[in-house]
């Protein structure tokens, strides 16, 4: 998967790239991201991380749900976002593909860049943005259609009508989601007949089919039993080879098992972001330590 997709420039005018400068903000407290440098650190020509947010704020009406969040997600890695419920981790995840747009009264300030392109630029095509960023939801949400039609859904949107190619890509996606062997002889059956874990893997296959650059997972295993959870976790480790994954989880063990980097959030702020091992063994922030040792949350 190439980093630079030339065509993406057609979505955003050249002048918009990197236009949203981070606001100058001296010593604004806890928002320190370990190892995260200012965007200026990326010298011209250097490769920018796949996903970058800079001083990102989000309000639901008057309630500020995200405060000055700055983080970076490098390519081909799994980043876990942890934190107590209501800390804004799902909100942050849904900011990356602008799913929050669906909620009335949402305002944002700051910058989110995916593949070097500004997500909140006025000229951004949200439909294309979401096509390039896959999302897997907390509860499996297959469409009430056949297994095949679920996976083919996004492909058909893109105008792929050729049956042979469609079948090839559906099979590919199902293989990547480690579901192919279980469903190969019942592709025409309703997706709702699958078990919860299978449904969730089907949703992953559905997202993979349109070849997203980033895969967002919002507590993908929270509605599943331990066996199904283990399979999803294995799958995430496999998918890392090809995709950039950001995963929200309320389960710290899960974050420790599958992620390369972990971000800890608390009441809308990013407290700490670092290598998973380091964050769990030698947290830099007192708050992080308190959380991972179970003192609150």
């Amino acid at each position: 998967m190439t980093l630079e997709t030339p065509s993406i420039r057609t979505i955003l005018p050249e002048g918009r790239r990197g236009e949203t400068a981070p606001e100058a903000r001296a010593g604004a407290g806890a928002t320190t991201s370990a190892g995260a440098a200012a965007p200026a650190a990326h010298a011209p020509g250097a490769v920018e991380p796949r996903l970058v947010t800079r001083d990102f704020n989000l309000w639901y009406g008057t309630h500020q749900a995200l405060k000055q969040v700055s983080l970076e997600v490098p390519d081909h890695s799994v980043t876990a976002i942890i934190g107590p419920s209501g800390c804004g981790k799902s909100t942050l995840l849904r900011s990356f593909n602008r799913m929050n747009d669906l909620i009335p009264g949402v305002r944002v300030r700051g910058s989110v860049r995916v593949s070097g392109l500004e997500v909140y630029a006025p000229s951004t095509d949200v439909v294309e943005l979401r096509r390039r960023i896959g999302m897997v939801f907390q509860r499996p949400n297959p469409f009430p259609k056949s297994i095949f039609d679920n996976v083919a859904f996004g492909l058909r949107l893109l105008g792929l009508g050729n049956r042979t190619e469609l079948e090839a890509r559906v099979e590919d996606s199902l293989r990547h989601a480690a579901l192919w062997d279980e469903v190969r002889d019942r592709l025409g059956k309703s997706a709702l007949a699958l078990s919860g874990g299978q449904q969730q893997r089907l949703c992953i296959a559905r997202a993979l089919a349109v070849e997203p650059e980033v895969l967002l997972m919002d507590e993908p295993a929270s509605a599943l039993d331990p066996t199904a959870t283990a399979r999803i976790e294995e799958l995430v480790l496999d998918l890392k080879e090809r995709y950039t994954i950001v995963m929200v989880t309320h389960n710290m063990q899960q974050a420790a098992r599958v992620s390369d980097r972990t971000a800890f959030m608390l009441v809308g702020e990013l407290i700490e972001l670092g290598e998973t091992r380091q964050l769990f063994t030698r947290p830099r922030q007192k708050l992080t330590e308190d959380y991972i040792t179970g003192r609150f949350g």
Partner: peptide, 22 residues
């Protein structure tokens, strides 16, 4: 069948929704 190659060369319609869809 081995897992498919990352299909970067044959990207799916890269320009956002087609005129028809819009």
């Amino acid at each position: 069948m081995s897992p498919a190659q990352p299909s970067a060369p044959q990207r799916l319609q890269p320009r956002g929704p087609s005129w028809n869809r819009r």
